[in-house]
Design a protein around this nucleic acid. Structure first.
Length: 582
RNA sequence: CGGGGUGUGGCGCAGAUUGGUAGCGCGCUCCGUUCGGGUCGGAGAGGUCAUCGGUUCAAAUCCGGUCACCCCGACCA
């Protein structure tokens, strides 16, 4: 590609609202252009990178017998209604109704489409197992797009779908996909940490997330400092430390004026925060119901811990969760700032009548707690479960955090921020059950099909690559995903130089290299700066100085070394500089 | 959804407190100059100041609504 014909140009300054380095560099270097919040155009250079990533994924998918196909992005409402996700998916699902009254969803993912095909094309155990994948656009009305290519409303995803005859078969296949994912990220120059994750809106029994540790990541995961335990904070377990007292103190009411926070109460009474119980209030709207038909939920955790809302919503059986408002809290007889389950009419279980109280197991790891008295300005001391109050259900709703005890080895865990680049789900029969997707086994018996789904965001991955591979001057693409192999430039105006560079351009392409050729009539400084910014791995500079000796300068973007290589040895020399695989 | 911030040529910004009809740098066009790390000089093109309404003789500037974009939070009573 001749730069004099290139569409778009580099920018000296990034737009002020670009915060992440990948966002700034990708815009400055002419890889992407914004259209709206979470919506980007891939410029020719950017699209080439996407295609490179795409190719790597295709190779790894083909290697495990995956077959590439191409599915629609406009989905009839009925396929989403069939699986129940027309309502269950939540507000992120983009729904549209045409003038003529037809209803569609804009693909946020493709389980429904794959499932629909299995209904017609998977009939026999002989048709299983199968693996299909495609790379296509996904649409999600994210509440907040952010970080350039990190969180988009329209994005590019490689999603694979496995179809198996049984759970065993699915489990047996899963590791090969897991390994393929590690290979893909490795080849893209992005080391990932596979972590246990929450299944969220996808449904199914378990999943792994592939996380890239990063300060500006939107995910938090927990990793053990002594063993290899790693899990998303929304699912991470930890050992609750602490014992209940041998002799329980008496429950006593105590005046605690102006103590509406855990810290204030603990300080006033003179106990550690772990000897208090924190009460938090939510409004839960069960799946498929309207908010007004929701229910009040009272959460309890030991005072030194935090509630994890994802864990809580899972304990409740799903749906939406939002903080309760003061009126709702008072309506059940609790007093904000001085609330507890003591004296409330507690439901016997999560579907029973009364107030639903979900308690974290941590309230059993301790005792003689300071707890609200549901009376303005008063707390109880010496509160113990179950002696002094009832709950509806005990669950794991507390958030794991740095310093907690590892559930696997007993070592210490720590919380880290990360960007999620891929996710593998064992969906099981979640979709086949909803739609009756079955096959006939050897005994002529209908059996449900087991599905797995495996996604990677290409644009997000591209941004992460830049986050990991750049310096002050610009991007430093790994060889594997660079938009071009070589950045060729001519220096100075001399006819001799121009001619030599033109010849070299043709020769290098003839030798099978992809070449970005800066043939502009620009000063040396401008060309060098742009080359550094764009970040093609290998730079070949043709100047009068070197030409006098029949040589050109070769420099890797990732190194400061410059080498003069004789013109007639260049084509042979280039492959020897390939960066070792990542 | 809540909180904070920002909207002025393609990009980065000033002008607003003290209303008087818009300016700088980069980029772009043309001429010359320079030619191995964003050369230098000159001449130009380009803006209903996000939008709607209000106050005023007069609004980028003051007041109100709306929209868009960015950041933080989606909790601890």
């Amino acid at each position: 590609m001749r730069m004099t014909k290139a569409f778009g140009k580099t920018l000296r300054e990034a737009p002020a609202d670009a915060e992440m380095i990948s966002h700034q560099l990708l815009i400055r270097a002419n890889y992407i252009r914004p259209l709206g919040a979470g919506l980007y155009t891939f410029m020719p250079l950017g699209y080439r990178v996407i295609r490179k990533i795409w190719d790597i994924m295709a190779e790894e998918m083909e290697a495990i017998d995956g077959q590439e196909m191409w599915m629609p992005n406009l989905h009839p409402a009925k396929v989403w209604q069939a699986t129940g996700r027309w309502t269950e998916f939540g507000p992120a699902l983009v729904k549209l109704r045409t003038e003529s009254g037809r209803e569609y969803a804009l693909s946020p993912t493709h389980e429904e489409v794959v499932n629909d095909i299995t209904l017609s094309d998977i009939e026999s155990y002989r048709d299983l197992p199968r693996l299909v994948y495609h790379v296509s656009k996904k649409f999600r009305d994210e509440p907040r797009a952010r970080g350039g290519l990190i969180r988009l409303r329209e994005f590019i995803m490689k999603d694979a779908y496995s179809l198996d005859p049984s759970e065993d078969s699915m489990d047996e296949f899963y590791p090969s996909m897991y390994q393929a994912y590690l290979n893909i990220f490795q080849r893209c120059g992005v080391p990932t940490v596979p972590i246990l994750a929450d299944v969220g809106a996808m449904g199914g029994k378990s999943s792994h997330e592939f996380a890239v540790p990063h300060e500006q990541g939107e995910d938090t995961f927990i990793a053990c400092t002594s063993c290899n335990y790693a899990a998303n904070v929304d699912t991470a377990e930890f050992v609750r430390e602490g014992q209940p007292p041998v002799d329980q103190a008496e429950l006593k009411k105590m005046a605690t004026p102006d103590c509406t926070t855990i810290a204030q109460v603990a300080d006033f009474v003179g106990v550690p925060v772990s000897q208090t119980i924190k009460a938090i209030f939510y409004w839960n709207t069960p799946p498929g119901r309207l908010e007004k038909d929701g229910r009040f939920v009272f959460g309890l955790v030991r005072g030194d811990l935090e509630v994890n809302e994802t864990k809580l919503v899972n304990a409740l059986g799903g749906g939406e969760l939002r903080p309760a408002i003061e009126d709702e809290i008072r309506a059940i007889g609790a007093v904000p700032g001085y609330a507890s389950a003591v004296g409330l009419e507690v439901a016997p279980d999560i579907n029973g009548g009364g107030i639903i109280v979900i308690a974290d197991r941590s309230i059993e790891n301790g005792g003689d707690f300071v707890i609200g008295a549901n009376d303005e300005g008063y707390h109880y001391t010496g509160a113990n479960y179950p002696r002094d109050f009832a709950i509806s259900q005990m669950a794991d709703i507390a958030q794991a955090d740095t310093g907690h005890k590892c559930p696997n080895c007993g070592g210490r865990i720590e919380a880290r921020r990360a960007i999620e680049v891929g996710h593998c789900f064992k969906l099981g029969t979640r979709y086949s059950e909803a739609t009756g997707a079955t096959y006939l086994d050897e005994n002529n018996e209908p059996q449900l099909i087991y599905m797995g789904s495996y996604g990677i965001g290409l644009d997000r991955l591209m941004a992460v690559i830049v986050e990991l591979h750049h310096d002050q001057d610009g991007i430093i693409w790994p060889d594997s995903v660079a938009p071009f192999d070589l950045h060729l430039m001519s220096l100075g105006k001399g006819e001799e130089v121009e001619e030599a560079a033109d010849k070299l351009y043709v020769k290098l392409m003839g030798a099978g290299f992809t070449v970005y050729y800066d043939d502009r009539d620009a000063s040396a400084g401008v060309k060098f700066k742009d080359a550094d910014l764009i970040g093609i791995p290998l730079r070949v500079t043709v100047g009068a100085r070197g030409l006098a000796q029949g040589a050109v300068e070769v420099k890797r973007r990732s190194s400061d070394e410059r080498l003069m290589v004789p013109l007639d040895e260049l084509v042979e020399y280039i492959p020897t500089t390939k960066e070792a695989s990542y």
